[in-house]
Design a protein around this nucleic acid. Structure first.
Lengths: 356, 356
DNA sequence: TCTCCTAATGCAATCGTATGCAGGCATTGG
DNA sequence: CCAATGCCTGCATACGATTGCATTAGGAGA
C-alpha cells in the first residue's frame, strides 16, 4: 500500500522541466508561455527548455493556469435545443473550430420551455471561468441568463440570436435574403398562391416571416389572408400547419417554411393528404439540414453556411479574449448569405391547377 | 484607470466567508466540503458558516478545487459522430443528466475517418483533469485513445461500444433482441424474403447483422444469398444499398436495417424507384431517431431507450468517481431492451407479390 | 581599471481550496 | 482541585503556473 507516492510521476510539471534543463521554474514558464514582449530569454536557453519539455512530454495544467487568473482555454456553449438537428451540426463545427484554436467546449443547456435550466447554466459559466461564451440560438426566453452575461466580464458571441437589439456581437444568416431567394424561385416557377409556415420560436424566426410578408406585398400587393401558419418548430408542427393550409378555400400551390424541420413535417402531411410534391404542391425549406437531401422528395431549401458562421464566431470569441479586460463591449453584427439549393420538392406550376 | 482593483470583488472566496463568519478559512472549507467523516464541526459554527456563505453568494472555484487534487466535477464526453442525429439526442441527455449530478460536460471529438482528432482529444482529457470519461459510440478506430484511457486513472464508461471485449463498464442496447423483434414482426406479416441493410461502422453494428443472420438461419434454414448489404451509416448509403437489393433477381419484399439513418435513405430510394412503401416493400429501422415518426411513410423501428442508457451511464460514472483511486477497474455490462414501434412502413405481404 | 547599464535569470508571492498537524478550551474523572 | 481526555478550530503548506521585483553577469564607455 506504499504506492501513495508513485515513483514515476505520471505528468511532468514545470518544476521537472526546470530541474532537467538546469534553469528556474519561472524561466520555464516564460519560455513556454510564449509571450515574446515580456522579458527577453536567451535563444539557447529557450531552445534547451523547449527541447526538455518536448522530451518529458510536458503539458500545461489548465487548472493551475486558470487559477492564477490567466486563460482557461475553455469556451462555454449555451445550446438552446439539442434535439434540433440543425444545432447538432453547429455543435460539431463549434468543437472542431474551438479545438483548432486550442480551446475546449463546455456545454450548457438552455431549454426553451422551462427557465430552470438557465439558472444552473449561468452558475456553470461563471464558475467554470470560461474564456468566452457562445450562444447557439435565441435566448430571449432566458432574460436572467442574458442579464448575468451582460454584467459579466466574459466576452459573449451570439449565433442565430433572433430579433434584436443585441448587446453582444452576433453572427447570423441573412434570413431576409434567403427567404426572398426561395420565394423568387417559386415565383419564377409560376407560383402565385404561396403560403408560409413559420416555426414559432420566441424571439426568433420572425425575420423570416416578415421577409415573406414584405415579398408578397411587394410582388402581389398583399399577403393572401390565411396564408401564414404559425407552428412549433417540430415535425408534428409542420404536419399540422399544412393540414390547416390545405383546408383553405383557395389552397396554396406552394409553401415556403422558416425551417427544414417543419418543411419535413409538411412533406409528411402532403403525402398523407395525397397532395403530391412537387406536382400539386411545391415546398421550400430553410437551413439545409443533413436529411434535407434525402427526404421524399428531396427538399429544395436554403443552405445555411454553418461552418462559416461558427468559424467566424469562434475566431471573434478568441479575438475578444485577447483584448484587455477593461475595453468596452463590442457589438458588431456579421451576416452570411444562405444559398438556394434546388432539389425535387419544387416544380413549375401546372397549367391544370385550378385558380390563378 | 484605477479600476484595476474593483472595490466590490465580483466573486467571494472562502477567505471572505471566513472573515465574515469570524472563523478560519480552513473551517469554512471543512463545512462547505460537506465531508462528514473528516473532522467534527460544532453545529452552530456550521450553521453560521453556511448562512454567511449563502448571504455572500459563495460558489466554490472548481479550478482551485481541481488543482488541489480533488474533483473537478467535469465529465469528458467523447463523441464519435456529431452529425448522426442519434447522438444528438444522447448528448442532450448526457448534459441534462450530468448537470443533475452537479457535473459539467466537456466535449471531445473522435471522428471516424482520420485519427487526427483522437490525439488532440486524449490530450484534452488528460489535461482537463476530468473526473470521468463517457465514450459515445464505438471507438475501435482510435486504439491510441483506448490505450491511454486504459492506463489512465480516470473512470471510463462506454456507451454503444460495439463488439467486445471491453475493459470498461459498458451500457448498451440489446441489439440482438431488437433485431429479432423487428424480424419477427415482418415474419408475422407474412414476409419471407427479408433483406438486411447494415450500416458499416468499424467495430459496431456487427451484432445487429449477425442477429439477422441467426434469425434467418433459424427460421428459414439459410440466409438468402445477396440479401445482406453493407453501406456507410449515411442517408446516401442506405439509398444506394436499396438500389442494389432491388436489382437482385429475387428482390426482397421487406428490408430491415441496422440504423434509422440508413432506413431513411432506403425510404428515399424506394420512392425514387417506384417501390411503394409499405405496399410493395416493408421497411424496419433501428433507433427511433426524432425524424422516424415523420418520414414518408412513418417508419416502423426499434426505440432506443436513450434516456435510460445515458442516465445509467452517468450514474455509474459518478459512482466510480467516488471509489478510492486504487480500486480495480470495473467492467460490468448493462443492457437495455429496445421496444418495437410499429408505424406505417410495414404492412402484410400482398398476395399479388410474385414469388414465395 | 572602474562604473554604469542592460540583458538574462532567479526569487518569491499569489490565485482558491484542501488537509495534516498542533494547539486551545471545556468537560469529566480521580 | 488538578490532570487527562476529547472535541473543535486554526496554522501552515501544497497543488502548478504566472509575474513583479530583485539579482547577477557581461559588455561598453570613460
Amino acid at each position: 500500500m506504499s504506492d501513495h507516492d508513485t515513483p514515476s510521476r505520471p505528468v511532468p510539471t514545470m518544476r521537472d522541466i526546470a530541474a532537467a534543463a538546469a534553469v528556474s521554474q519561472s524561466t520555464v514558464s516564460r519560455v513556454l508561455s510564449g509571450v515574446p514582449t515580456a522579458v527577453p530569454i536567451a535563444p539557447q536557453t529557450r531552445q534547451r527548455v523547449l527541447q526538455t519539455a518536448r522530451e518529458l512530454g510536458y503539458r500545461p495544467n489548465p487548472l493551475a493556469r486558470g487559477l492564477r487568473g490567466a486563460a482557461t482555454n475553455l469556451i462555454g456553449a449555451v445550446v438552446r435545443d439539442f434535439s434540433d438537428p440543425f444545432f447538432a451540426g453547429a455543435i460539431e463545427a463549434l468543437v472542431v473550430e474551438s479545438m483548432g484554436h486550442g480551446y475546449n467546449v463546455v456545454l450548457g443547456h438552455a431549454p426553451g420551455r422551462t427557465g430552470k435550466g438557465a439558472v444552473s447554466l449561468t452558475t456553470v459559466l461563471e464558475t467554470r471561468h470560461t474564456d468566452a461564451v457562445v450562444l447557439l440560438g435565441a435566448m430571449q426566453e432566458h432574460p436572467k441568463l442574458l442579464t448575468e452575461l451582460r454584467s459579466s466580464v466574459v466576452p459573449v458571441v451570439a449565433l442565430w440570436p433572433g430579433i434584436g437589439p443585441h448587446d453582444f456581437p452576433t453572427v447570423d444568416a441573412d434570413d431576409r435574403a434567403g427567404i426572398r431567394a426561395g420565394l423568387s424561385h417559386l415565383e419564377s416557377l409560376g407560383h402565385r398562391r404561396i403560403a408560409f409556415v413559420n416555426a414559432e420560436l420566441p424571439g426568433n424566426y420572425r425575420v423570416r416571416v416578415e421577409a415573406y410578408a414584405d415579398f408578397m406585398r411587394e410582388r402581389f400587393g398583399a399577403v393572401p389572408p390565411g396564408y401564414v401558419e404559425q407552428c412549433p418548430n417540430t415535425l408534428a408542427g409542420g404536419d399540422a400547419a399544412l393540414r390547416r393550409l390545405l383546408a383553405h378555400p383557395e389552397p396554396p400551390t406552394a409553401v415556403a417554411t422558416s425551417t427544414d424541420l417543419v418543411a419535413v413535417g409538411v412533406l409528411h402531411a402532403a403525402h398523407s393528404l395525397g397532395a403530391t410534391v412537387p406536382d400539386r404542391l411545391s415546398v421550400v425549406g430553410f437551413d439545409d439540414i443533413l436529411i434535407a437531401a434525402h427526404t421524399v422528395p428531396a427538399l429544395t431549401t436554403l443552405r445555411m453556411p454553418i461552418a462559416e458562421i461558427v468559424g467566424h464566431a469562434v475566431a471573434q470569441a478568441v479575438g475578444l479574449t485577447r483584448e484587455p479586460a477593461g475595453s468596452p463591449r463590442r457589438t458588431g453584427h456579421k451576416v452570411f448569405a444562405p444559398a438556394l439549393v434546388v432539389r425535387d420538392s419544387t416544380a413549375p406550376l401546372m397549367a391544370t391547377t385550378p385558380g390563378v
